[in-house]
Design a protein around this nucleic acid. Structure first.
Lengths: 135, 135
DNA sequence: CTATTATCCTATAGATTTAATAGGATATTT
DNA sequence: AAATATCCTATTAAATCTATAGGATAATAG
């Protein structure tokens, strides 16, 4: 299941991308338009800023704005920041690989086998999607 | 992230599928071979029996066995029973559809748009995989 | 018939993760 | 100096997942 954090993050990014103007948008406005708890959204936008997707400005007229062109924002990167690993098990993860402690041999593991296919399928989708495609 | 329930369930199913003999296998043996908590596995096998994947026999010489030929067991069905909906959001789910309460219009929702693609990609994998492919 | 074996079933405890809130600090503009 | 809006950490609340407990039921063996 997609977490609310990811859902809200995607909605906020899309909201910002849909604005032609480059002016900062306040958290309060995004929260209201997208039906999101403002405080929760605040923490999400903060993490998107710290990971280089958003810029921010304080004080009156401040808010958040996209740093890159939506066409340049890959969903693989967005999803990894918001939702975490794209793989459903660590043993097939490209960026967060970890050996399963219960599994003696990955090559002969049925779960590994299936989840490898799932990972590839998901990666294909995310790699072919940019923020611009969501607007 | 894949739940342990699903992981263990898949391993147990594969274990049973890999046995040529049709004789029942005891929970204890599967648990030991696959490094799974026996009691937890017990509840998982129970649900797989109730959903028609496994048969069981009580008493000495009892245990669980596959009902269908592994080639006939589709991963879509297995995953839905073990992990739940394949879709990451209810609004793109085929079997568990539900409207998002915060979203006024699905057609213009960016999350819906992206998750529809993800669902299709995952479905394609699961529909093309049977239990026999995991052995 | 009785002892043994193994599943059946419900309930619950424990652990982890997710979602949301609180409250003040910091920086910017007017 | 006042108002505005992000920044940041901590904490609470809720939900979900994982695991365990303990007895009931049914089948087999002797």
């Amino acid at each position: 299941m997609l977490s609310k954090k990811t859902k809200y993050g995607l909605k906020a990014l899309t909201f910002l991308a849909s604005r032609k103007e480059k002016e900062p948008v306040q958290i309060a406005e995004i929260a209201k338009q997208e039906n999101i708890s403002q405080k929760f959204l605040e923490s999400i936008l903060l993490s998107l800023r710290k990971t280089g997707f958003l810029g921010s400005k304080k004080g009156k007229g401040g808010g958040y704005y996209l740093i890159k062109d939506p066409k340049e924002v890959l969903m693989t990167d967005v999803m990894r920041v918001l939702e975490g690993p794209i793989a459903m098990v660590p043993c097939v993860s490209l960026n967060f690989y970890e050996k399963c402690d219960d599994c003696p041999d990955e090559k002969s593991c049925s779960v590994n086998k299936l989840m490898l296919k799932v990972r590839d399928a998901n990666l294909a989708v995310y790699r072919n999607s940019t923020l611009a495609d969501l607007v």
